[in-house]
Structures are given as C-alpha cells and as structure tokens.
C-alpha cells in the first residue's frame, strides 16, 4: 500500500480524474489512463482540475473511449493482448457508433484509437457506393452531373466490374 503523504510516481498513478459526458454522467478514470489523451493531459498539466466536462461526447461513446484508455494504461497487459483488444474493440460496431468514436478521438486527441477506428471505417467503406458515403457522412453532392461524369470518365477503369453495396 502507498501512504498518502508519500510523494512519488506511485502516488501520481493512484490519482484519478472525473470526466463528465454531455449527458451529465460522470466517469472516474485513473490519471495514467486520462493522460493517454493529449487533450486531457494538457488540461491536467495546466490546472489541477479533477473534474473535466466534455460537452460534445455522449455517454456511450465516452464509456467506450475510457474502456480503451484504461486498457492501454494497464502495464500488466502485453502489447499482443492490447492489439487483440483493439481488434475486438472495433469489431461488429455500427458505422454510426464508429463515427462518434472517431470524432471523440479527434477531440480528445487519442491518435492510436483514431487510427484503429479509421481502419475499421475504411474496411466497411471499401465496397460501398458513393451515394452511401454521402448519406453516412452527411455530404451533399456539389458536382454538376457533367462534372461528375467527367471524373468518372478519367478514372474509367476504377468502375470496372464493381459489385457495390448500398445498405
């Protein structure tokens, strides 16, 4: 056991932070996990705040990010285990969930999670139609039909025998 008056790296590790989602739920996170996020690390360096409010991350997403951070902060786990956790973490998740996750990693600046999620999103997108992508990313087609046809003509080979999904 580490006593409270002892000052050293061990006590620092024991410290924890409260993170509040936009729905008002609070999560208790160890500082070693929180500092894996560059944004949280900066805040903790600036002030000794123990409560951080994230006004743009909802409950569900925050819980997932914190589970990720805690796993990666655990020194007892091997890199292999962490890698397989990453695979498990994104597998089977809906595209919508991944979108919220990738936005949260952007806000919190958790680069490695951002890459993992981006890869999963890319995996889902590889066989999708342009229309599907526009819908999922809330993008409006800003091409004229002629301009779109011209781009398609230039890369004609990319359109060969594509079997695409629109679900």
């Amino acid at each position: 056991m580490v006593t409270t008056d002892e000052k050293g790296p061990l006590t620092a590790k024991k410290k924890s932070v409260i993170i509040r989602s936009c729905d008002g739920d609070e999560f208790l996170v160890s500082e070693s996990a929180a500092v894996l996020s560059t944004s949280l690390k900066k805040i903790l360096e600036e002030k000794e705040d123990r409560l951080i409010h994230l006004s743009d991350i909802d409950n569900k997403t925050l819980a997932m990010v914190i589970a990720y951070l805690s796993t990666h902060a655990d020194d007892g786990l091997s890199d292999d285990l962490k890698r397989s956790f990453d695979q498990e973490f994104v597998s089977g998740k809906e595209f919508d969930v991944l979108k919220y996750l990738v936005l949260a990693t952007d806000t919190l600046q958790v680069t490695c999670l951002c890459y993992t999620v981006a890869k999963k999103m890319a995996d889902i997108m590889k066989n999708k139609l342009v229309e599907w992508v526009r819908r999922e990313f809330d993008i409006q087609n800003d091409y004229t039909p002629e301009a779109e046809a011209e781009i398609r003509r230039l890369d004609a080979w990319a359109w060969d025998d594509r079997q695409l999904e629109d679900d």
């Binding site: 981006a118 890319a122 997108m125 590889k126 342009v130 800003d142 091409y143 781009i151």
Partner: peptide
C-alpha cells in the same frame, strides 16, 4: 489512406 486504391479513385465523386 486505409481504403484500397481502387475505392479511393471511386470516392473522388463523393464531393469536391
């Protein structure tokens, strides 16, 4: 960066 090259070219028509 993580989708196949073929898909990247196809996605040029998503938007400008």
């Amino acid at each position: 960066y993580r989708v196949p090259a073929k898909t990247v070219l196809y996605f040029k028509t998503v938007c400008k």
